[in-house]
Amino acid sequence: MKTGDLKTRIKRRIFQVAATLGFNLDFLSLMKGNISQAKTKGLCLPALNCYSCPAAIGACPLGALQNSLNSLRYNLGAGQKKLGLYVVGSLGLMGTIGGRLPCGWLCPFGLLQELVYRIPLPKIQVPAFLTYLRYIILVFLVLLLPLLVVDASGLGWPWFCKWVCPAGTLEAGVVLAALNPAIRGQLGFLFAWKLSLLILFLVWMAISSRPFCRTVCPLGTILGFFNRVSAFRMRVDLERCIVCDACQKVCPVNIRIYKDPDSSQCVRCLKCEQVCPTVCISHGFRLSEKEAEQITGA
């Protein structure tokens, strides 16, 4: 392995650990078993990091988005113009700058998946058809159901958080249940369901690479739409590419980057760049083709 490759691997791991700790800095709340009241919790973090994790100092953009949608009718009925513009804009800004870069470099749940995948067990691929499930989950559980299914007062529920999100179960549910007896006493069927899903994902993570990112994560799906326009981009010099598929072999989401450097599945981990024998893959914050060419000096 080249020194530069090792540096990139270490640098990315440092980013992931630092982001996980940085997004969950309120250790005092963690020790008390309450959730943080930090003033920064109005900021949408560029990662799937549950804001009910006791130590979280920022908001999960997915939770915030669902809550904006599930209270939209109530707010409009009450004459309040709280339309969720700030949350949508925050998601747009994250995507426009980096696309899915935060998935590969900042997301605590991404880090967890990578660490669990290191367990020496036989590995299997995620079936390709399951990668389309994330669109269904985004449309129904994150957008439509929170917006359309409401109670008599006009308020709905964050369906994805409630029925699926294993990050919430792990960071908030398990932690708070362990630390807070009052919460522990209220756990029932829903917690059992969510815990089962979390365990299922943990097992899947051990045998498949980033299964949650590839089949479920609505945040990654939203950011993935921006891979085609984001300032951060991957580039492949096709004149130098020998189609050896070394890139696909190390890719955590099993894509051939030379076919589509802007693939909505690419989490910008740069592993492909490190193994490319002809050094034809590159990355950078470049907008125009001319600038992109300067990345490789092509």
Partner: peptide, 15 residues
């Protein structure tokens, strides 16, 4: 967003 984020999310926990 802040108000929601500083309140325990029962759905996230699974209650």
């Amino acid at each position: 967003v802040w108000q929601k984020a500083v309140t325990v999310c029962l759905e996230c926990i699974g209650i």
